[in-house]
């Protein structure tokens, strides 16, 4: 569809997520999802200090789940 966003997840607005342990806002960073020996590079909110990667619920129960299901039938 025209105009459809291709990114899986956008941090919008930035700075609304904070790492409790380090007390700093999460920033957009490169991460890799892996499943059954497949890897998918994505951009996710990550703590710049401790590296905590946040996977939001909508993403986990949406796109991630559907990709898992597809891979399971490969």
């Amino acid at each position: 569809m025209a105009g459809e966003q291709k990114t899986y997840y956008t941090i919008d607005p930035e700075g609304r997520l904070k790492c409790c342990k380090c007390g700093v806002p999460l920033v957009k960073a490169n991460a890799v999802f892996g499943y059954l020996d497949n890897a998918f590079p994505v951009e996710l909110p990550v703590c710049p200090v401790c590296g905590f990667v946040y996977v939001p619920e909508e993403l986990a129960m949406g796109k991630v789940l559907s990709v898992e299901k597809v891979l399971e039938d490969k």
Binding site: A31, V32, F33, G34, G51, V55, E57, A60, V67
Partner: peptide
């Protein structure tokens, strides 16, 4: 997803995924 107070933790929502996730 939880809140924290003097009594301890109250869990409001839970979810899971099988994929691993790492930073690059």
């Amino acid at each position: 997803k939880f809140t924290e107070d003097a009594q301890g933790y109250t869990v409001h929502r839970v979810y899971s995924h099988r994929m691993t996730v790492e930073t690059r």
